[in-house]
Deep mutational scan, measured.
Amino acid sequence: KFNKERVIAIGEIMRLPNLNSLQVVAFINSLRDDPSQSANLLAEAKKLNDAQAP
């Protein structure tokens, strides 16, 4: 279950337009470290993406 959620979360994070490459890598590394947190990490990535919108 967590592996599928992690793959989906990674794909979504990679498509967030307002994150820089270091932020994307940090979120992906966090997902690798704890796949059970996929939903929480994706939500945090989306919040950061929205906050950094031009």
Rank of each mutant, 00 (worst) to 15 (best):
F2T: 15
G11D: 05
F2H: 15
A43E: 08
N49V: 02
V25K: 10
K4D: 15
Q23C: 03
P35M: 12
I10R: 03
D34K: 05
P35I: 07
A45L: 02
M14T: 05
V7Y: 14
K47Y: 06
G11Y: 11
F2K: 15
D50M: 09
Q37K: 11
N20M: 11
R15N: 09
A9S: 04
V7D: 15
Q23K: 00
N18H: 11
I8P: 02
N18I: 01
L19R: 00
F27E: 01
L42E: 02
P54F: 09
L22M: 09
A45Q: 00
I10L: 10
A45H: 00
G11F: 10
L42I: 06
I13R: 00
I13V: 03
I28N: 02
N3E: 15
N3A: 07
K1D: 15
M14F: 04
A43W: 07
E44D: 06
Q37F: 09
Q52K: 03
I28L: 13
V24M: 06
A43I: 10
L22D: 12
R6C: 15
G11T: 07
K47T: 11
N40M: 11
A53Q: 11
P35R: 03
E5C: 14
L16N: 01
D34R: 06
Q52S: 04
D33K: 11
A9G: 02
Q23Y: 02
N18K: 01
S38T: 11
N49H: 02
E5D: 13
A9H: 03
V25L: 12
L19G: 02
N3Q: 14
A53F: 08
K47R: 11
A39R: 11
F2S: 15
L41N: 02
F27S: 01
N29Q: 11
K46P: 00
Q23G: 01
L42H: 02
E12H: 09
E5P: 02
E5S: 05
F27C: 04
K47G: 06
I28H: 02
G11W: 12
E12S: 06
G11H: 08
Q37D: 06
E44L: 13
I28V: 04
L22Y: 12
P54M: 12
K4Y: 06
M14A: 04
R32L: 14
A26T: 08
I10N: 02
Q37L: 09
N40K: 11
I13Y: 01
L19K: 00
A26F: 13
Q52I: 04
D50V: 07
D34E: 07
R15F: 05
N18T: 01
K4N: 13
